[in-house]
C-alpha cells in the first residue's frame, strides 16, 4: 500500500464517520424530546455533515480521479464505506443517542486534538475546526449523561442499557491497521492506542458520576476498517443515496 492509498482510505474513514453519524443524528429532526433538543441534535448533525464534506473533498483530491465529495458520499457501495459500526447503529431512544454521542464525542475530541497537530496541513486545518465543534458535542452529551444517569428510575435504566449495548462497539475505535501505521510514521495520523487510554480516562469518571455501571464485555465488534458493516448501513445508504441512484448527476 502506498502512502497515497493509505491517506485516501484514512480520509474516507474520517469523512464516513462524520457523514453516517450526521445522517443518523439528523433523524431526530422533528422528533426531538422537545423543540430545544430537536435543534441541538440537528445542529450537531450539521456539524458532522459539514466536516464530512471537508474530509471527503480532500479524499477526492488525493484520489486524483476528478471525483467530488458528492461522488464519494452518494456513489459508493456499503463495502467501500469505512465508518465505525457504532455510527451506523439506529438512533434508538434518546438515552441511546446520548450514549452514542458520549462515546463518539469523547473519541472525536481526543482524535481531533491530535490531528490538529498533523503534519498534513489540510487535515490539521479541518481537525482544528472540528475540535471546536466536538468540544461542544462533548459537553452536550456529558451533561445529558449526568441528567439521564441520575434522573428518574426509567431514565437511568434506559441509559444504563444503552451504554451496556454499545460497549462492544467501542473496541474498533482504537484498531490500527496498515493504513494507520503508515500514516502514524509520517506524522499524519495519531496513535489510537494512546487515544484509547485517554478515552478511558475521559469517559470513565463521567459514567461513574452518572451512576452508570461500567460494562464488562468479552467480545468486541469489528469489521468496518475492512468495509464490513452491520445490516444497518445498507438501509442508510438506500435512503441517503436514493436521489443520486434514481436520477444520476441530478442538479438543483
Amino acid at each position: 500500500m502506498t502512502n497515497q492509498e493509505a491517506l485516501y482510505i484514512y480520509l474516507l474513514r474520517l469523512g464516513d464517520n462524520a457523514l453516517i453519524n450526521g445522517h443518523r443524528l439528523a433523524e431526530w429532526c422533528s422528533r426531538g424530546p422537545f423543540l430545544e433538543e430537536d435543534l441541538a441534535m440537528t445542529n450537531i448533525a450539521l456539524d458532522n455533515i459539514g466536516r464530512s464534506q471537508a474530509f471527503l473533498k480532500y479524499a477526492a483530491a488525493i484520489d486524483g480521479k476528478g471525483k467530488t465529495e458528492d461522488d464519494l458520499a452518494y456513489k459508493r457501495g456499503e463495502r467501500e464505506f469505512y465508518n465505525h459500526l457504532i455510527t451506523e447503529l439506529p438512533i434508538g431512544d434518546f438515552a441511546y443517542t446520548v450514549a452514542k454521542q458520549l462515546i463518539m464525542s469523547c473519541f472525536d475530541v481526543l482524535v481531533f486534538t491530535d490531528l490538529s497537530n498533523s503534519k498534513d496541513e489540510t487535515i490539521a486545518g479541518i481537525a482544528a475546526k472540528a475540535l471546536k465543534e466536538s468540544r461542544y458535542h462533548f459537553v452536550h452529551a456529558r451533561d445529558w449523561s449526568y441528567r439521564l444517569g441520575k434522573g428518574t428510575e426509567e431514565s437511568h435504566r434506559r441509559y444504563q442499557n444503552a451504554i451496556q449495548d454499545l460497549w462492544m462497539y467501542t473496541g474498533e475505535l482504537f484498531e490500527m491497521n496498515e493504513v494507520e501505521n503508515i500514516l502514524l510514521q509520517e506524522g499524519i495520523s495519531n496513535n489510537l492506542q494512546e487515544v484509547r487510554s485517554n478515552w478511558i480516562n475521559l469517559i470513565m469518571p463521567i459514567l461513574q458520576d452518572s451512576s452508570i455501571r461500567i460494562p464488562t464485555v468479552d467480545y468486541m465488534q469489528t469489521g468496518s476498517c475492512k468495509g464490513i458493516h452491520s445490516e444497518h448501513l445498507g438501509h442508510i445508504l438506500s435512503d441517503m443515496q436514493y436521489l443520486q441512484r434514481a436520477y444520476p448527476d441530478a442538479k438543483w
Binding site: 430545544e36 433538543e37 435543534l39 441541538a40 451533561d143 441528567r147
Partner: peptide, 20 residues
Amino acid sequence: SVHASDSAMALQNARDIYTR
C-alpha cells in the same frame, strides 16, 4: 426564551437556537 431544567442547559439551548 428557551425551556431548560437548569442554567447550564438553558445556556446550551440558547446557544443552539439563537446563535447558530
